[in-house]
Amino acid sequence: MSDLLASDLITPDAGESPLLNQGSVSILKAAPIARLSFRAREASLKAAGSVFGAALPTTPLACETAVKRAALWMGPDEWTLLAPEEDLKEVFEGIEAKLGDEPHALVDISERSEAVIVSGEKAVWLLNTGIFIDFSLDAFPVGTVTRTIFHKSPVMVWRTGSDTFVVEAWVSFMDYVAGLLVQSAQELEAA
């Protein structure tokens, strides 16, 4: 796991049994983490990044990771900041204190979504049963993060390894997303 991005942050939820654990692909529920939506103009990025601990990427669909921190590009003025749950208050207050009156918006969205880790040689195939994105490594290299549509549900997909993806959906959509992933993977068990 250590060669994966943010492997100290995105970890399988130890309390949950795997949704799918099959030779060529597994689907594991990710443990809860702190998620913050950070919105600001370019002038504030450096300061925010320095106090957060990971720089806020300005390259579209890119991420920056540091020890127990990850900053994901969501839009030209929008980042999702990830940190361990217990660091939520520290991160939130740290950024607020650092930026002070500089225009920005910081909102706790930790509870809004849940994530599953889709991993294995068939991970790309499985995601492509519902997502119309070219996941070949040259088109979607490790580290790429994007919002998109999985069948009828909005999701966020973050490639943390060549065969590993974090798929995040709003909580009420997760039954649908995880359910369809598991169902679609069934045929891999066929003889």
């Binding site: 579209p60 669909l61 119309f132 994105i133 998109t148």
Partner: peptide
């Protein structure tokens, strides 16, 4: 399904995202 280039994400994506 159209193929649309997002000038912010700088990628082409399927119409269903738009």
């Amino acid at each position: 399904m159209l193929l649309i280039y997002c000038p912010y994400c700088q990628v082409e994506r399927a119409e269903t995202e738009f």
